[in-house]
Design a protein around this nucleic acid. Structure first.
Lengths: 222, 222
DNA sequence: TAAACAATTATGTCGGACAATGACGGCGCA
DNA sequence: TGCGCCGTCATTGTCCGACATAATTGTTTA
């Protein structure tokens, strides 16, 4: 490496994480073009690394790549958003169920509880970025508790990030309702009630689906 | 491009498909190293393209990449195989349910029926590669019918290929049982019975799980 | 005004170069 | 003789430069 990269993951990782960070920060918006040369300049890495990062992002569905055309931050149509939410209903339900089944083992409870408390922190709720991170941590804790590696590997590609970013401008679900949902999921998992945990996670996603369905056309692409 | 590539997907696609093909053909076995230089020679493409292909394969979980070490065809441990099967139970169930709900629209029925007939062809069942392809087509037809793009994008990364390849040497499930399973799924979808379709798909995966659980340690890694 | 053509832009791919790291084997020391 | 250190080797990680190729846009001409 000509220049040492501070991150352990290497140059492509710097770009990869940088773009995602930029997405949540609003630096990159859905529909925006991501020109390789620009990223090369911004992140000070070779074009190969930029390319690799874009491929990773494309693999997770965050950006769309068309042959001989620039990569663009994916912007969801109404149908795509609906599909993602339906998929997440199934996936999160599965995840919550697994977590409830295995809640006994290890320090899982502590990690989930910690994440849950962070979500309920007023200060965190004010900051879009911090709140998003907190929710990610909550979901990640549930995933880890479930202990299904295949599911853990698959989840990032489901498109949850995309939803959050695209609809950031809208309060998709009433805050109180959302927090109640999280509480229900948390308590069901904590109680080891797998059926209730799955139901709660699914209900949460269904609520989100209803809220997204009522958004104006301006919130969607195509 | 210095040399024109016959495939429309470009050089990385040639390598990507070539490796998967090689996996099913037995040219590459689980645990085998995939050295970039070798692939560069074999497929006659630049190292960059090989790298890109390996990243795609890694994104789908087909190969494992460790920093500064060669990419390795992933070999599943017992736990990993179990996780994948559990995940596929959920995913395939979801897929079958969606297909049953939307069976009315378009030429979906024809495509599924065609794939189902191919699976039941004796000649196809003799050839591991053709049989694998036929099953893929059956699942793909169900996915397409379901019409959930997010699910379609996600499925390849779930790890179904990995299971097939790793346990190819063992008759994981009695042929007759397997065909019965497929028939049950097919008929439920055809009848538009979403609940039964989901149950049939799940049952199928659970049967596979039981069969895999009884395989000897030699069939697994680690 | 519309079709053909030219310039611009950005990606797709290759090749070479060199640093960084991990694996392996041999050497020296206890 | 055995064990740990050290160099070599194989291979990946990254950058750079070059050029073909294709999409986009602008321009000229019939």
């Amino acid at each position: 490496m000509r220049q040492e990269n501070p991150e352990a993951d290497g140059s492509p990782g710097v770009v990869y994480r940088g773009v995602i960070e930029g997405l949540y920060r609003g630096r990159y918006a859905p529909g925006q073009r991501l020109v390789e040369a620009d990223l090369t300049r911004d992140f000070e890495v070779g074009r190969g690394s930029v390319r690799e990062a874009l491929n990773r992002l494309a693999a997770e569905g965050l950006v769309a790549m068309n042959l001989h055309r620039s990569a663009v931050v994916r912007a969801l149509t109404r149908a795509e958003a609906r599909d993602i939410i339906a998929l997440l209903e199934t996936l999160n339900g599965f995840s919550a169920r697994l977590a409830a089944e295995r809640i006994a083992s290890g320090d899982s409870i502590a990690r989930i509880e910690s994440a849950f408390k962070t979500i309920n922190d007023r200060a965190v709720q004010q900051d879009f970025l911090r709140y998003a991170r907190a929710r990610n941590q909550f979901h990640a804790a549930i995933l880890t508790t479930g202990g299904n590696g295949a599911l853990t590997r698959l989840m990032p590609g489901a498109g949850a990030d995309l939803l959050r970013v695209q609809f950031r401008a809208y309060a998709t679900v009433e805050d109180s309702v959302r927090l109640d949902d999280y509480r229900a999921i948390y308590e069901a998992i904590r109680a080891g009630d797998s059926r209730k945990a799955e139901a709660a996670a699914k209900l949460h996603m269904r609520r989100i689906g209803e809220a997204v369905a009522q958004l104006p056309d301006a919130a969607f692409a195509s």
